[in-house]
């Protein structure tokens, strides 16, 4: 399991941030507002906003030390949320890369996710505004861990009893990419045999369409719940082409839910699965 956790933790995306021309100083060519970064999948994209802004501060119309509006990211003119792990957002909007995986595995090509940086007095209505800067991101993440803990243990005590010092180490493990510190504290919260799994199912190519089913790890007859059982739980008719993606990987439908959770859990304590069905794919084309 450690090996898989390491691979999941180190999974990363090449992201090209492009400042929209309306936020660049007049006359500045677009290529001066570009920042290329390799960013872990299992983190919030908003954690990288200060770095992106610092790289292009000299070409922005906005004074990044003193601004009252909001920055946000867009993909193909659609604003993208920051409150899900970055890799999940990528899997939701770009699931086709799995169906056509050849370019990604070719040594001569580089997959680059192009996102636009935008700014305005008001954030698009579907996004969580940042009122308290990066502090708010940490609080939000801790709130998700409280939820995850409640689902796993029937109480948030395990999170509430993490000391202030360990809580800071926990958050820093996400920012500084220290898997050992992360696992050390996460495993104090996640029981060995949970009854329920904190699960969020996202629909591919459809932002905001999510389900948070309450799903037990074992059925009444004692058998382990499989990924396949999520269809029944969500009252969805399964089509032969339907696939679940987690951390950029297609998950076999006959895998035990607990095993998938233990291996692929995100840094927010949830298992994020992206359901891609043929109807979603054809909608795009």
């Amino acid at each position: 399991m450690e090996k898989v956790r390491e691979l999941v933790w180190n999974g990363a995306l090449n992201v090209q941030f492009i400042a929209k021309s309306n936020i660049l100083i007049d006359g500045i060519p677009e290529n001066k507002g570009i920042v290329n970064l390799r960013i872990p999948r299992d983190t919030y994209i908003i954690n990288y906003l200060p770095l992106v802004l610092s790289r292009i501060r000299n070409v922005l119309k906005i004074n990044i030390d003193d601004y009252t509006g909001q920055f946000w990211f867009e993909f193909k003119d659609t604003s993208i949320p920051w409150h899900y792990p970055m890799g999940v957002i990528y899997d939701v909007v770009e699931p086709e890369y799995l169906r056509n995986s050849a370019p990604a595995n070719d040594d001569t090509t580089l997959n680059m996710w192009k996102l636009h940086l935008n700014y305005g007095p008001n954030i698009p209505h579907n996004l969580l505004p940042l009122i308290d800067g990066i502090n708010q991101v940490e609080k939000y993440w801790m709130h998700l861990w409280k939820q995850a803990c409640f689902i796993l243990n029937g109480s948030s005590k395990q999170v509430m009893s993490v000391s202030m010092k360990d809580s800071q180490i926990f958050w820093n493990s996400v920012l500084l990419r220290r898997l050992d510190n992360f696992e050390h504290i996460a495993r104090r919260i996640v029981p060995i045999k949970p009854r329920f799994v904190p699960l969020i199912v996202h629909r591919g190519l459809s932002f905001g369409e999510v389900n948070q089913p309450t799903i037990m790890t074992h059925k009444d007859d004692g058998s382990a719940c499989k990924i396949l059982d999520i269809f029944v739980n969500l009252s969805l008719e399964r089509k032969s082409s339907d696939i679940f993606i987690c951390q950029g990987i297609q998950i076999p439908l006959d895998m035990d839910l607990t095993a998938v959770y233990n291996n692929f859990m995100s840094f927010d304590g949830f298992l994020h699965l992206v359901l891609i069905s043929e109807t979603h794919s054809t909608k795009e084309s």
């Binding site: 209505h125 505004p129 009122i131 709130h143 369409e209 948070q212």
Partner: peptide
Amino acid sequence: ELDIFSNDNKFPLRSPV
């Protein structure tokens, strides 16, 4: 805290925040 209540699909054009 602030949060998004994404399952509120009854009024998709209204803010979920």
